[in-house]
Amino acid sequence: MNASGTLTQQSPDADALTARDLYRFYRAGEEETLALRGVALEVRRGESVAVIGPSGSGKSTLLACLAGLDEPDGGTVHIGGERISHRPEAERARVRARRIGVLLQTGNLIAHLDIGANIRLARTAAPGASKQSIAELLEQVGLGHRARALPQQLAGGELARAGLAVALANDPDILLADEPTGELDGVTEQRILSLLRERAQGGDGVLLVTHSSEAVKIADRVITLRDGRITS
């Protein structure tokens, strides 16, 4: 941010994502839980990275901190060279809207808006961030004929692709996905993974939190998280 408070543009040569020494702890009464213990990672542009580990290892906490949905208690996160951590929520939201596509298990679609309107709404947070039309984006995910459909009118595989389209609405530096194929059949899973792989090959960073062996196969690197630490 410059002296006038305007968010500065960062170098396109910067990594899609860089995290350094992330710590996150939670207190319940006198008990303290360390969810992240000095996690450091980077995702280069054009690279896909899978984060694996048992339940309770800190994967969801890590994803929330990387997306700026939660604040680490220590360490920093940069997206495309721009710091998102330790800033007011309004500033984190602006960075997230312009630079991050987030695909969560709970979904990112608003039920009373059709798919095209969901994408338009996402773009109001970062006007001009994408040069791709809504029709082109929907064609890319195989939903060119479903722009006017409401989320409840879509089948499971279509819902997953619609959520991906919304996550990609602003042509983000990095896509962060939490179990993006967890509830899908094998054929639909392969289609979603193919789309994610194409996105990475096109120059974006992709980070997947996953338990899927098929999702791991598309990753350039695999990071194992256990007890809040990277073990491999």
Results as ranks from 00 to 15, higher is better:
E71L: 14
L176K: 02
T33F: 10
L22F: 04
E214V: 14
E189Q: 13
V141I: 03
L175R: 04
L195K: 08
Q105N: 10
R44E: 07
A165R: 02
G46Q: 04
N108C: 14
A219G: 12
G74T: 03
A200S: 08
A160G: 05
A122Y: 06
R94F: 01
L113K: 07
G202Y: 01
L168I: 06
D227C: 00
T33E: 02
P172A: 07
L138A: 15
H145A: 14
A149S: 15
Q132T: 15
A90I: 01
A3R: 07
R83L: 01
G157S: 12
T6R: 14
R98K: 15
L104D: 00
P88W: 03
G142I: 07
D173G: 10
I79T: 11
L208Y: 04
A97L: 04
H211N: 15
E42I: 00
I192R: 08
G58R: 09
L164V: 07
S212R: 13
P72K: 08
A126V: 09
S55A: 08
K131C: 13
V102D: 00
A35L: 07
S55P: 03
D114L: 12
E32A: 03
E82D: 07
D185M: 08
L184K: 12
E183S: 11
I110D: 13
A67C: 07
L193S: 08
P12F: 03
G163L: 03
S57C: 06
A28M: 02
F25H: 07
Q190L: 12
A129M: 11
L63E: 06
R87H: 11
Q9I: 08
T224P: 02
S213I: 00
L150Y: 15
I192G: 12
H112R: 15
V187R: 09
D178S: 13
G75K: 10
A64T: 05
I192D: 12
V141H: 05
T6E: 12
L36I: 06
T6G: 05
R229W: 00
I134E: 15
H145V: 06
A149F: 05
S213D: 15
L168N: 11
C65P: 07
S55N: 07
A97M: 05
